[in-house]
Nucleic acid binder design. Structure first.
Length: 357
DNA sequence: AGGTTAAGCGCG
DNA sequence: AAAGCGCGCTTAACCT
């Protein structure tokens, strides 16, 4: 119930009316349906010139945490077990990932300090710890494997900081000379490549001109010609065959790659570039889950595999079994396939999921 | 009353 | 015309 003078902060339409009609704030961008957007990016921009957007952003962040996690998760605790039990869907995500629902435990907050307090609520019983093991840079490693690019393969073979190495190549400085800004830009480029990002996308993401963004991308492809080749070959193959596939042969069909409108086709091209990497990562962690479960059962220890979050496995481990699990878990994860670059898994231990991360 | 869509945002 | 992949969940608005 809203009292007089209050308004509903959760409604984009009402925000739009107040911000853009009453207060006459500039419309930064529009939603697909043509309404003025009030999303986070827009509010960040408006916050440079007006006080209200910042307050709204804080409210949005906190109400998201409350409505989705703090209010909901306690209600979903199973009375018999005293735990929350998610469901994993095995045939939903087109790339071969699992998805998680009721509740979704694959989007528990981690990026903000307030959000991490929710992660702290995931605890082990007395005498046990939470153990988390996640693949390091898995999709970039797969890109190195599929493309066979010499520089990228060397980065991983040498155990380098891959974003720093990329910055060093793009900006023509030695790795130790790479600035924080240069590394940040290189990281955006590395991730952007996995998603098929264009010069336009890179420019708007890091706040530079399209021409400057194009120069960075050109420079990247100059230094990593194998990656440029992969991008082109993947587009060609997708158009010729109508599908792309993971390293293990699971296919993603792309009916719109040759037909449809320009935007749909371009969307299909980005999906074609991303799917072999995202999908191969999904294949690898599925192999890991099988290997880990087989090991747990064969070795007759009490540790249990309790969650999967795309590139991460979470186990509940009695303290006595910690040394063994710490050692064996990453070995199993890294040993499920021999790619052209090493696989690396990082292990953490804690009293709760946040500590283990 | 109940279902669907749009917008937004949490994660990898 | 759009511009970065893949998901699930919440709220408000809209529809039957």
């Amino acid at each position: 119930m809203l009292a007089g003078g209050e308004f509903n902060l959760g409604s984009p339409k009402q925000i739009g009316q107040i911000f853009f009609e009453k207060l006459q704030l500039p419309v930064v961008k529009k939603t697909p349906s043509g309404a003025p957007s009030t999303d986070e990016e827009v509010l960040q921009k408006l916050a440079e010139d007006y006080p209200l957007p910042k307050i709204l952003l804080e409210h949005r962040g906190l109400s998201k945490l409350k409505s989705t996690y703090t209010d909901k998760l306690p209600r979903m605790v199973n009375a018999k077990t005293g735990r929350v039990h998610t469901n994993y869907a095995q045939a939903v995500a087109v790339t071969g990932r699992l998805s998680s629902n009721e509740p979704n435990l694959q989007n528990i907050p981690v990026r903000t300090a307030e959000g991490r307090r929710i992660r702290e609520a995931f605890i082990a019983p007395p005498g046990s710890k939470i153990v988390s093991a996640d693949y390091s840079q898995i999709e970039l490693r797969i890109m190195a494997h599929i493309s066979g690019d010499p520089s990228l393969m060397r980065s991983f073979a040498e155990g380098e900081d891959v974003h720093r190495a990329t910055a060093s190549e793009i900006f023509g400085v030695t790795p130790i000379e790479v600035s924080n800004d240069q590394r940040r830009i290189a990281k955006v480029i590395n991730f952007g490549l996995i998603y098929g990002m264009s010069a336009f996308g890179l420019a708007s993401n890091i706040g530079i001109s399209r021409d400057a963004a194009k120069l960075y991308i050109d420079r990247y492809f100059q230094r990593y010609p194998g990656v440029a080749n992969y991008m082109e070959e993947t587009r060609t193959k997708a158009k010729r065959d109508g599908f792309v596939e993971t390293v293990f042969g699971r296919r993603l069909w792309l009916p719109e790659i040759n037909g449809g409108s320009g935007p749909r086709r371009q969307g299909a091209e980005r999906a074609a570039i991303n799917a072999p990497m995202q999908g191969t990562a999904a294949d690898l962690i599925k192999l890991s889950m099988i290997a880990v479960q087989d090991w747990l059962e064969a070795s007759k220890i009490e540790s249990k595999m309790i969650m999967q979050v795309h590139d991460e496995l979470v186990l509940e481990v009695p303290e006595a079994e910690l040394p063994e699990v710490r050692k064996r878990l990453p070995e199993l994860m890294c040993g499920v396939a021999k790619l052209k670059v090493p696989l690396v898994a990082e292990v953490g231990v804690g009293n709760n999921w946040e500590e283990a991360h």
